[in-house]
C-alpha cells in the first residue's frame, strides 16, 4: 500500500510494536503463561499453548513512539494509542486503548481475544490518534510493520503460507489413491492451503531438502523450483477465483492474507504497466469476461517462475552439472 498523505500534520518517526507476553485461559478458568519464545518473527504462536480448548488469549502489547508524540508545542493534543486486531476472514476488529508509561514514549495494554472470534491468523497493529485542528480521533502515526496473532501455529512464523504434509498417496483419499505416482498435490484454495508430498515417491522429501552442488543438490533445487512454480500458479488462480468485491462499486479487492501479497507481487510481472489496483481489475475482467484470459496464461506462468526462482535454479544446476562432468573427466 502506498503511503497515505493526510490533510493535517502527522507524527514522523518510527512506531514499533511488539507483543511482550501472551497467556491463554483454559476451559477451567486457569491462565497459562506462554513462553516468550511463542512470540518471535513479528508473530505470536498461540498454538504453542499446552492448554487444550482455551477460550481467551490475553496479549500484552507494547508500543514505542517518538518522544514528540506527547511533547508540548506539537500541533496535536489528546493523544491516545490503541491496539487493533483484525482478521479478513472473520471481519474481526478488536481494539484496546493502551496506557502510557512515565515518559510517554512507551504505551502498554492488554488485548483480550476470544478464540471463537479468530479463524486462523489475525493482524495486530496500532494507531496513534489525537485531536488535530479541532478534529478528534485523527490518525497521527502507524507502525511500518504489523504483528500476526496465529491461534493455530505452534511456531511463530510471520510469512506462513501453505501447510506441508507428507503422506503416502497410496493410502490417502480416494482421489489421490487413483494417482499414486504424483510427486505432490497442491491445494491453494479455501481456508487450508496445503501442499502434500507423496512419501510413496522414494527419496522425494530427502531430495527437496538436499544441500550442496552434488547430484542430489542439483535435482533437489530443480524439484524445489518446479514445486514453487506450481504453488504460485495455483495460488494466483485460487486467489483470483475467490476475490471479494467492493460493496459500492463492485470492483475486486485484494485478499487480506498472504495470498493478497503474492497476487500483488505476481501482478507486477503480469501487467507491469498498471498500478496494483488496476492490474487486479484488469485480470479479473479478463478472467470473468469473454476474451483476453488465454493470452495472460504465459504471463502468469512467467510470474510464478520468477517468484519460484526457476531461472536461477536452472542456471545453478547447469553450472553444477558442468563441474561434476569436469571432475569426472579429470
Amino acid at each position: 500500500m502506498a503511503r497515505v498523505i493526510r490533510p493535517y500534520p502527522t507524527l514522523k518517526g518510527t512506531v514499533a510494536l511488539r507483543v511482550q507476553a501472551a497467556s491463554v485461559k483454559g476451559p477451567d478458568g486457569d491462565w497459562e503463561h506462554l513462553d516468550v519464545a511463542a512470540s518471535a518473527d513479528r508473530t505470536t504462536a498461540l498454538g504453542s499453548a499446552d492448554t487444550l480448548g482455551w477460550t481467551t488469549a490475553r496479549l500484552r502489547v507494547s508500543v514505542t513512539v517518538p518522544a514528540k508524540a506527547t511533547a508540548a508545542g506539537e500541533p496535536w493534543s489528546d493523544v491516545n494509542v490503541l491496539a487493533i486486531l483484525t482478521e479478513g476472514a472473520t471481519n474481526l476488529r478488536a481494539t484496546v486503548l493502551l496506557r502510557p508509561t512515565d515518559d510517554g514514549t512507551e504505551w502498554i495494554g492488554d488485548l483480550d481475544v476470544l478464540r471463537a472470534d479468530v479463524f486462523h491468523r489475525a493482524n495486530l497493529t496500532v494507531q496513534m490518534v489525537g485531536t488535530v485542528g479541532g478534529v478528534p480521533g485523527r490518525v497521527l502515526a502507524e507502525p511500518t510493520e504489523d504483528w500476526v496473532i496465529d491461534v493455530r501455529a505452534a511456531r511463530p512464523e510471520h510469512g506462513q503460507t501453505f501447510t506441508v504434509r507428507e503422506t503416502a498417496f497410496s493410502r490417502s483419499s480416494l482421489w489421490l489413491r487413483n494417482m499414486p505416482d504424483l510427486p505432490w498435490s497442491i491445494n491453494a484454495a479455501g481456508s487450508r492451503p496445503e501442499v502434500r508430498l507423496n512419501t510413496d515417491m522414494e527419496r522425494l522429501t530427502e531430495l527437496l531438502d538436499a544441500q550442496g552442488d552434488g547430484p542430489a543438490g542439483i535435482v533437489g533445487s530443480l524439484l524445489l523450483a518446479q514445486l514453487g512454480e506450481a504453488m504460485w500458479t495455483a495460488t494466483f488462480h485460487a486467489a483470483l477465483g475467490d476475490l471479494e468485491s467492493d460493496e459500492e462499486d463492485g470492483s475486486p479487492l485484494f485478499p487480506a492474507d498472504w495470498r493478497g501479497e503474492a497476487l500483488r507481487d505476481m501482478l507486477r510481472t503480469v501487467l507491469p504497466d498498471l498500478t496494483p489496483g488496476e492490474a487486479l481489475r484488469e485480470v479479473h475482467r479478463r478472467r470473468t469476461g469473454d476474451h483476453g484470459w488465454g493470452e495472460l496464461q504465459s504471463r502468469i506462468q512467467a510470474a510464478a517462475q520468477e517468484r519460484a526462482g526457476l531461472a536461477k535454479a536452472v542456471r545453478e544446476a547447469v553450472r553444477a552439472l558442468e563441474k561434476l562432468e569436469r571432475e569426472e573427466s579429470e
Binding site: 511463542a38 505452534a154 506462513q160 501453505f162 506441508v164 527437496l208 531438502d209 514445486l227 507486477r268
Partner: peptide, 26 residues
C-alpha cells in the same frame, strides 16, 4: 528456541521457498 518435534514437513528448504517475500519493484 521453541521446541519442535523434528524437521518441518517437506524440509527447511521448502519452508523457506514458501515464505518468499516480495522483491522491491523490479
Amino acid at each position: 528456541v521453541v521446541p519442535r518435534a523434528e524437521r518441518p514437513a517437506g524440509g527447511e528448504r521448502l519452508k523457506k521457498a514458501m515464505v518468499r517475500r516480495a522483491k522491491p519493484p523490479a
